[in-house]
């Protein structure tokens, strides 16, 4: 299952990038996140690892993730090491007037889970889509209210 959400933020890419790549911010803006801890010595960048949990339905679901793509001010992607199979990606692009388009993609599933896995993915999508929409709105509000554009 793949979920994709976008939003335009009135802030430069560099500011949005700094905000999104700081693990300390995830519990602030990511709706449903209950944990986003740095694991190991690398806090951000390629190879950084985080222990992540999102409340989905009756459980906090997640596991250990690792940053596998890192193109400053453009793309950051992670993949799961343990826990639910997942890939996430922040994709930033310029918009006219110095704004930034923030695109978030999240793909997840449980390999080998069969029909139950497919059902669970669809049911979970209802929760996750709502969470991600609220998260992007939170990013927009936080960055725009901080006067990042000026």
């Amino acid at each position: 299952m793949r979920i994709e959400e976008s939003i335009d933020v009135e802030a430069p890419r560099s500011v949005v990038w700094d905000y999104l790549t700081d693990p300390a911010n995830y519990l602030v803006f990511m709706d449903g996140a209950t944990r986003w801890d740095v694991v190991g010595d690398v806090e951000r960048g390629l190879g950084a690892r985080y222990r992540v949990l999102l409340r989905v339905g009756s459980a906090e679901v997640g596991g250990l993730i690792e940053v596998v793509e890192w193109h400053p001010e453009a793309d950051m992607a992670w993949s799961s090491v343990t826990g639910v199979d997942q890939r996430g990606r922040w994709h930033l692009r310029d918009r006219p007037g110095g704004d930034t388009r923030v695109n978030f993609r999240f793909a997840y599933g449980v390999a080998g889970a069969g029909i139950a896995g497919v059902l669970a993915e669809h049911v979970a999508a209802r929760w996750l889509r709502g969470d991600f929409k609220r998260s992007l709105r939170a990013i927009k509000e936080i960055l725009e209210s901080s006067g990042a554009r000026a």
Partner: peptide
């Protein structure tokens, strides 16, 4: 791991 989706569905939707 492969059976958690069943348990999650039961736990989240039924209980």
């Amino acid at each position: 791991r492969e059976n958690l989706p069943w348990v999650w569905l039961m736990s989240s939707l039924w209980f």
